[in-house]
Nucleic acid binder design. Structure first.
Length: 790
RNA sequence: GCCGAAGUGGCGGAACUGGCAGACGCGCCGGACUCAAAAUCCGGUGGCCUUCGGGCCGUGUGGGUUCGAUUCCCACCUUCGGCACCA
């Protein structure tokens, strides 16, 4: 009598066994001892515990990683697969303010709940490596690393305009400004001048465009390329006629230099404030205060003549200098030479203000009106003009980037404290290493009030200067949470180390991450910053590799009602009720069966029914086969089907990174066994089905493995297809006439091409379409088809 | 505007290297079991026509290459995503 399939019972049972056995904990290699060569670091982006539940997007992400983990493990790889928490950050702080609880209390309760949910889904995670960004044992090293960046001149303080969200009362990074509004709260972003810490990401701009040894999606690379925005051009010096000062411009079109008819400064350009007319200064004050997005939205260009002129270094012409807000201070040099004939924006400006237009490139892309450069093709003209300028010290070829340095200061409470002290005498002084971490103090009032919450806490702020012992103040800001996530994957590898952030030997063993799975929305933030971190650490000798992630995969969004599931949209569907009703195995299978993992997919709980039906059928069938089928028997059709399924499933998961088709393949196998449960090879086929479904549904697979008389499927070798069994001795020959299928029948695989054609011509149906005539041409595809052309 | 991805049954999707379009699942229809229903099991299920043998059409649209195109090429349409006054 087959017992009932009770998912919750068997799932709890096996989860306990795996925990007791430490089945998915993996030791680090030890220096001096032999190490396994085939190691695999399976990583999915760490969750952000600002809500008390994981959602179906997490279930998709981590189940994919889990399938990889199981298949790799059972294929003989050493697999490390850790988990942790991106515990600092604004949403948690805002939620805490709303609920009147300390962010730590909220976050830790959320982490406990999410961890319990993860364990209930049975994911093969090495929980002994768990880290959370808000724990002092972690952020001690975040601070230590921050100081290293400063020491290596890759992190610095600068005053400059920053995006300020008046609602969240903090600076926000460029990537969180969407159409001039704060991505998180929607408030209109203002520009403010503040002194901030910046990571010098631009120092690696060129290198970030390359992916040595990396297998990254083209799409992601394109997004990063776009973000970095490398453009080759020239810097050219223009002398101001009235003052004798030189002002540099950046241009990608030095070939059009003779067509420059005016000159434009950004409103924020320092020369405006020092030398321009009062009217121009007045314009600059208004224009400069407005966000770029707002300026760009205007249809008409605005600007004011400054009263000054610039001398074109190539022909001595005097160009009026205008101040206009279509020129941006933080790209290039904040000044341009305007060539209205060949630049759309300059053209619009010239039209608005009646400025002359001089074409200098003809239809054949050759230079005209350009003095001695006339007749040169534009590309050659670029080089020739830059060379001429260079000879006179008036210009040089340069490369410019859209990428800005990464602003990392946040005027908020719930983040990693910045380990620096401001002393009037000594300046900005690092907190001595033996005093790290600078503990984030518990404070009563962390609501933003225009100045950082920590700044209001005198006990925290007032310290002795570590250098002179005089009175000094802590830095009141905290770090952007992308700093935490830029190195957490290194800490996982050595999370209990209290001597260093990590040991280089073990990190060099496991990294780069073999497979990183996460959302494509992190392409310009987290992924770029992590690459920057690793390149810098490699330069300092902390790690022996230069890229953190060898392979990257982006899962699609799980949508509900057509919109992407996320906390901010409020359409989060958690797994709890589904796991209660159907079990973790069903939920895991269901989310992966939804469709290709790299495409968006609409969450439809109705699909669960089909999966549950499949699991019950598998359950019944295995019990039936275990009770009735012979221990081992002659190979038959099921043997071949089982081997074909092994080949398909393995290839789909390991090579194609495709997770929904293997489920179909195992379903097919189970359907075939169901049709012949008494076959001599039914037991082998059933064992294969159970073994292949284990990465998806490890609990039921483990239970059924026991029913079939075996033990410890989680560490059983991954099945290998027997190539001898894959060879078919017959195949279905397709016969076409003029490319249309007219007949199909089984033939012996050993038949020659001539014999195949002969057999094809015997077919009544084919003859009917040949009309008794001779085919003009006959195409034979071995082991597939014969096509007659008439 | 620039860059990228994608368009296949009622639905999610499969078809990996140019060779049987629609695997697998959902839904729906019919049948078995049942007093009845649920569950389960069996069968059917792209459209149109049919003398029930089969025939024709069909992978966003229009062309092309090929014996043969969902797959390759050209043009276009639609949807989604990224970037965008970046000189």
């Amino acid at each position: 009598m087959t017992p009932r399939y009770e998912p919750n019972e068997i799932e709890q049972k096996w989860q306990r066994v795996w925990e007791d056995e430490r089945a998915f904990n993996v030791p680090n290699p030890v220096a001096g001892e032999p190490t396994a060569e085939n190691h695999w670091y399976q990583l999915e982006m760490l969750p952000y515990p600002s809500a008390p539940s994981i959602h179906m997007g997490h279930v998709l992400n981590y189940t994919m990683g889990d399938v990889q983990t199981h298949v790799r493990r059972r294929s003989g790889w050493h697999v490390v697969r850790p988990m942790g928490w991106d515990a600092f950050g604004l949403p948690a702080e805002n939620a805490a303010i709303r609920e009147g609880r300390h962010p730590r209390v909220t976050i830790e309760a959320n982490i406990d709940r999410m961890r319990a949910q993860m364990k209930r889904l049975g994911w093969a995670i090495d929980w002994e490596r768990e880290v959370a960004a808000h724990q002092p044992s972690f952020y001690r090293w975040t601070q230590w690393l921050f100081q290293q960046f400063v020491a290596h001149d890759l992190c610095y303080r600068k005053e400059g305009p920053v995006n300020w969200c008046p609602n969240d009362q903090t600076v926000i990074a460029n990537e969180y400004v969407v159409d001039g509004h704060c991505e998180r709260c929607g408030a209109e972003v203002e520009l403010r001048n503040m002194t901030q810490w910046f990571m010098r990401t631009t120092a690696y701009a060129d290198e970030l465009l390359e992916y040595p040894g990396g297998d990254w999606p083209e799409k992601t690379k394109a997004i990063q390329r776009n973000w970095i925005g490398r453009s080759e051009g020239a810097e050219i010096l223009f002398e101001v006629a009235e003052t004798g000062d030189d002002i540099a411009v950046f241009t990608t079109r030095p070939d059009t230099l003779h067509g420059a008819t005016f000159f434009v400064l950004a409103p924020e350009h320092p020369f405006v404030d020092s030398h321009a007319s009062d009217e121009a200064k007045e314009y600059a004050r208004h224009a400069g205060a407005r966000p770029v997005e707002e300026r760009a939205a205007e249809t008409e260009k605005t600007g004011v003549f400054s009263g000054l002129h610039a001398i074109n270094p190539v022909n001595g012409e005097k160009l009026p200098i205008w101040v206009a807000d279509y020129v941006l201070m933080d790209y290039g040099t904040g000044a341009i030479m305007a060539v209205p004939a060949h630049d759309e924006r300059d053209g619009q400006f010239a039209e608005t203000f009646g400025l002359p237009v001089v074409p200098v490139i003809d239809e054949d892309a050759k230079l005209v009106n350009s003095g001695r450069f006339d007749g040169l093709p534009a590309e050659e003209g670029k080089r020739a003009i830059v060379a001429a300028l260079e000879a006179e010290g008036r210009g040089k070829a340069t490369v410019n980037y859209r990428l800005r340095d990464w602003s990392v200061s946040r005027q908020r409470y719930w983040g990693c404290p910045i380990p620096f002290i401001h002393c009037e005498k000594c300046g900005v002084v690092p907190v001595p290493e033996d005093q790290l971490p600078v503990i984030l103090p518990d404070i009563e009032d962390y609501a933003p009030k225009g100045k950082p919450p920590l700044a209001q806490n005198e006990e925290y702020m007032n310290v002795e200067c570590p250098q002179c012992g005089g009175p000094a103040q802590r830095d009141p800001d905290t770090m952007d949470t992308f700093v935490d996530s830029s190195w957490y994957f290194l800490r996982y590898i050595d999370s209990h180390n209290d001597e260093a952030p990590f040991d280089r030997f073990v990190v060099d063993y496991w990294l780069p991450v073999s497979q990183y799975i996460g959302g494509i929305d992190h392409s310009t933030g987290h992924l770029l910053y992590s690459r920057f971190f690793v390149k810098a650490m490699n330069d300092w000798g902390m790690v022996g590799f230069r890229e953190p992630f060898a392979r990257v995969f982006h899962q699609g969004w799980v949508t509900l009602g057509g919109t992407k599931m996320s906390k901010t949209k409020g359409n989060v569907e958690g797994p709890d009720e589904l796991v209660d009703r159907y079990g973790a195995d069903a939920v895991r299978l269901c989310i992966l069966f939804l469709g290709p993992a790299d495409q968006d997919m609409e969450w439809t709980p109705s699909g669960v029914e089909g999966i549950v039906r499949f699991l019950r059928r598998l359950w019944r069938l295995v019990h039936e086969v275990a009770a009735g089928a012979p221990e081992s028997g002659a190979a038959g059709p099921l043997t071949r089907k089982a081997n074909e399924t092994i080949a398909r499933v393995t290839d789909d998961i390991l090579r194609r990174f495709q997770f929904h088709t293997p489920i179909s393949a195992v379903m097919e196998l189970v359907n075939e066994i169901s049709a012949a449960p008494d076959a001599p090879d039914a037991r082998f086929a059933a064992e294969t089905a159970v073994s292949l479904i284990q990465p998806y549904a490890p609990h039921i697979a483990e239970e059924l493995w026991g029913v079939l008389g075996h033990e410890r499927l989680w560490e059983a070798p991954w099945p290998e297809a027997d190539s001898a069994q894959l060879v078919r001795d017959t195949f279905e020959l397709v016969v076409q006439v003029n490319g249309k299928v007219r007949d199909r029948f089984e033939v012996d695989a050993s038949l020659s091409e001539d014999e195949l054609v002969a057999r094809a011509r015997e077919s009544e149906r084919v003859r009917a379409h040949l009309d008794g005539g001779e085919p003009r041409k006959t195409v034979v595809v071995p082991r597939r088809l014969v096509n007659f052309v008439v």
